[in-house]
Structures are given as structure tokens and as C-alpha cells.
Amino acid sequence: MAIVILAAIALFLVYNAGRALTEVGLGTMLSGIQWYPTSDPGKFGMLPLVLGSLLVTGVALAVGVPVGVGAAVFISEFAGRRLKEVMKSVIEFMAAVPSVVYGLIGVAVLIPLVKDVFDLSSGLTALAGGIVLGVMSVPTIVSISEDALHAVPDDLRHGSAALGNTRWQTTFKVTLPSASSGIFAAVMLGLGRAIGETMAVLMLTGNAAVMPTSLFDSVRTMTGTIAAEMGEVVQGGLHYSVLFTVGLVLFAITFGINLAADLVLERQRKRWRR
């Protein structure tokens, strides 16, 4: 059934993207650098959107990965039981906050901050969107990394400690390498989350559909484009169909990422099963 739904999603996306794929062509769309969907004739170069997504996601990972993995290591290897419980509830709370709320907090707090600190005309930038996305990806990265660290048998830690290694040496030389594939998967899933996130980036990145040149530019992501423009297009029209193509590209990217992460996780599970 899950397969049916997944296949149905792909099918409906392809079906609705059909007109764009035949009339404009996937290659033209993916390589085009101009996104003027409402001009006549419309220009549907997706590259600015794809790059916008990648840029924002890159910032998100730069923020989310060190914090997320660091926090996971702390929870799993250093924290006592009470602190562990507290951290877990905190992570659960962060995961439960809706993305539109993160977006709003970003608008209220981060945007003015970015504007003042970097002396910009507007704080609505790839940087601001990326930082909030990074925060949002932390729960995913922490919980999956923590699972991976938790799966490493204690025997290994004891073995290392018995050789005279300190806790950190054990963590760095033995535990982290043993859990590396799981942590990699955690990062991948965090990446998938960040690329697919819609509302926060829509509210924070300024949504200028031009080729980004720096972190302080306003960018527009694939998700933001769909959300912002779908409400205004003619159903069945070319623009409508192009937006479905954007969705299809997004689906393909996240599908690939999730599949890779899943295979890595599966391998990790096999390794510790005895």
C-alpha cells in the first residue's frame, strides 16, 4: 500500500508535469537561469531555484550538523540519566513546533539581527533562511545520530577504556567510527528535511528568483516557489505544469537522499545484529 501511494505520488506529479516536460523540456528547465513564469512567453529556468535550495540547505547543514552531532554525542556518551531525559524532551519539543512558527520567529528575531549585524538593506537572505532551517534539522540529526551511537555495543567502549583511553578518546577513536554510517544517515535525513522544508524558507529568504551570488542575497527555493505561485496559476496551464515539474525534481532529490540514508541505516543494523 505504501508502495501504491508512493507510486501514485510520482505518477500524479509526472502526469501533471507532462505538459511542461513536452512543451519546455526538462533539460531546458534545469539549465535555464531565468525564472519569469508570468512574462509572455514565460521563462522557466529552474536553476536559480535549485541553487537557492542548495545554498539555503548548505547553510542549514553548516549550522545543524555540528550542533546536532555534538549534542547527540553529549547525550549518548557524557550526559547522566536525568540530563538525557531532559535533552530528549527538549528535542521532542523542537520537533513538535510547526515550521510556520519557526518561520515567524525567524521573521521577528533573526531577520532584523542579520540586517543589523551585516549592515544589509534587508535581512531576508539565504543566510537567515539557512540558519532557521539548521535549527529545524537539529531534532532529526540528534535523534538519529543518538540511535546510531546507542547501537554501538558497550563491550567496545569497555574494551577501549580497559586499554587506558579516556572517555573522549574512546568516543573519538572507537564509538564515533563505529557509528559513522548511522551518523552519515542522520545527516542525509537532515538534508532531506531541509531541502523539503517549505514554510520557514518561504517567509525568510526574500524569494527573489535570481541566480544567487552570496549568502546575503535574497534567494528563492523550489519549495517556496511552489507554495507561493501555485495559488495564482491557471489549473492545467503551462505554469501550473511547470510547478509540478519543480515538485517532481524535488521529489526525485529527496527520494534519492532518503533511499541512500535508508540503505546506510540498514547496513548498520546488520552490522550490530548478532
Binding site: 523539503g196 519549495t223 524535488l250 527520494f255
Partner: peptide, 11 residues
């Protein structure tokens, strides 16, 4: 579980 929510919206 990993499909972006906006893609669910399109679907």
C-alpha cells in the same frame, strides 16, 4: 516519511 510536505500538497 521523507517526502517533502509541499510535494504532498501538490499530490
Amino acid at each position: 516519511a521523507g517526502v517533502p510536505s509541499i510535494v504532498y500538497g501538490l499530490f
